[in-house]
Design a protein around this nucleic acid. Structure first.
Lengths: 203, 203
DNA sequence: GTCTATAACTCGATAGAC
DNA sequence: GTCTATCGAGTTATAGAC
């Protein structure tokens, strides 16, 4: 049952599948594309992962497992609310830089088939939403920050951090931004976004 | 050639197709889904619009024609930079409230096949990107606002206005937000977002 | 484990009756 | 204009040789 040696083929498939699924979406992705990207043939995909659906679930669970734990631990730490927000922003961008296609993928699939997709999603780890809301409510009660609606604040944080990665192709093709310029912009945002957020909540 | 009476079937198809394309994406959408949603059968789709591709283009052009003109005219007006930004935010949200699925659709398709899709896109009206950048550069030169990188500011504006619409299903299913609550949040953001943006650039 | 060949099925598109 | 029936291309999935 345990395979230690041959990471190679299985891992090649996983890497290829991640890229293909996440750029083309579940329905746009072709098993042939994945096989080509992995340098093998279609039959092997079914040998390792019974079906397209199973392969998809494997990729997706794996990707999501990385997304939330660090955010939760930041929220649970004993930093100030301002430090927490800064750390959350940096952590968000760091995580997404490692899997820049994921946001588009999640958003598309959630819109395509909300119930089915979110069942898979919450089958694994949940986003630390409750922890965030509580953290903000406490900070408001202690008058450390302006009275803000936690959901609005959360939307602001996530919007400012994630959306730019989703419009990368637009920036490149319409805005004439090169890959290097894009990376520089994103790096700059790690400081810029926390500033904006903190300015919007500090008294 | 001119059909005045029977909006009904053709319009039913357009309405149905808009919804299906834009929630499921180009490749996820099925002609059968569209036919079902329109209450007709597949053959009629091909009778009115030769192919899936043509139907798609019709929908898409129509949707995009509405998106940019107002933004351009705001930028060209003689309002102050702060008034312009506020108007842009409000206008963005107004437009998107009328076609809330469009952002997800555009983002997905742009990521799927950037060149092909953007050719169609720019075949019609272009987003007034240049006008925006110039407007900001002038405001900076006149010292009306802090020195800011126009692209960063643009990303902030668009992120804060559009992204929340894209995560509507997440808010509903994970955050337990009802449709009414969501609408209220978005309405609130028409004031909230301009405040945040303006606070981030004023001296 | 990996391949080729092909079965089984989905879906866009068309033919043809009404 | 609208329908039912069906074709043909493209895809997922499997059988079977190596």
């Amino acid at each position: 049952m345990v395979k230690l040696k041959d990471k190679s083929t299985e891992q090649k498939i996983l890497d290829a599948a991640k890229h293909v699924f996440v750029t083309k979406g579940m329905s746009g992705a072709r098993m042939q594309d994945i096989a080509d990207a992995a340098g093998i043939n279609k039959a092997l995909l079914h040998y390792y992962f019974r079906s397209k659906e199973k392969l998809f679930e494997t990729i997706f669970s794996e990707a999501l497992e990385k997304l939330f734990p660090k955010l939760a631990s930041i929220l649970e730490s004993d930093k100030t609310i301002f430090e927490k927000i800064e750390m959350i922003c940096v952590e968000y961008v760091n995580q997404i830089q490692q899997m820049p296609y994921l946001p588009v993928f999640i958003i598309s699939e959630v819109n395509r088939q909300p119930e089915a997709f979110l069942k898979k999603m919450t089958g694994n780890r949940k986003p630390p939403l409750k922890a965030f809301v509580t953290t903000i409510e406490i900070a408001v009660k202690r008058k450390e920050i302006k009275p803000v609606q936690p959901l609005q604040l959360l939307m602001n944080i996530i919007s400012l951090n994630i959306f730019p990665f989703m419009v990368k192709p637009l920036l490149q093709y319409v805005g004439g931004v090169s890959k290097k310029q894009f990376d520089a912009l994103m790096e700059e945002r790690k400081k810029l976004v926390p500033q904006i957020i903190i300015q919007s909540i500090k008294k």
